[in-house]
């Protein structure tokens, strides 16, 4: 029986193609930085992009009315940035490596498990020690923290692997 030894590459068809990695990484990084800066500098009000949006639920604070399943006027600066960050963050995090093989799959799983544990540890700590309005900032950060921690851990582990691989032949 003759097998093609090269076809060992795992058929991981749930990952995005490698060619999207660089461009999605750049868009993710830029939109994440802009989002963070605007959030802390109250930039969403300074650079509004007013438009009509469809709201399933909309509630304008204490004095405003509640509107369900209707069109409302709102600034979509933050919506655009959040969508860009999440969509391109997911593509960057879950696209194939240049040399995708079973060890990369194992490193990816390992990083994902640790990212989940670290993220929930941070959530528990924030929940225990942060109260009042600052907790809103924590809630906003939680939207991206697991993805961000995973990306950092995975990139670091792949970097360590590549570095260990170059020191001997």
């Amino acid at each position: 029986m003759v097998l093609n030894l090269k076809s060992i590459n795992m058929k991981t068809n749930y990952l995005f193609p490698y060619r999207l990695k660089k461009i999605s990484g750049i868009i993710f990084l830029i939109s994440f930085i802009v989002l963070t800066l605007l959030y802390f500098l109250d930039g969403f009000e300074k650079f509004p992009i007013k438009t009509k949006v469809f709201a399933i639920v909309a509630d304008y604070g204490l004095l405003g009315e509640t509107k369900n399943f209707g069109w409302i006027e709102d600034s979509v600066t933050d919506e655009i940035l959040v969508i860009l960050t999440i969509v391109f963050g997911i593509i960057f995090a879950f696209s194939k490596e240049k040399y995708e093989d079973e060890m990369v799959t194992s490193v990816r799983l390992h990083s994902l498990v640790w990212a989940t544990i670290i993220n929930y540890a941070l959530i528990v700590l924030s929940y225990m020690f942060i109260y009042g309005m600052p907790f809103l900032t924590v809630m906003s950060a939680i939207m991206f923290s697991q993805l961000l921690i995973f990306i950092i851990l995975f990139r670091y582990n792949i970097y360590k692997l590549n570095k260990a691989g170059t020191d001997e032949e």
Binding site: K6, I8, N162, A164, G165
Partner: peptide, 17 residues
Amino acid sequence: KIGVSRQTINAMEKGKY
């Protein structure tokens, strides 16, 4: 020859993978 990266061979030889 077996369709993996050199890093994987290196890690296997070191017993890390």
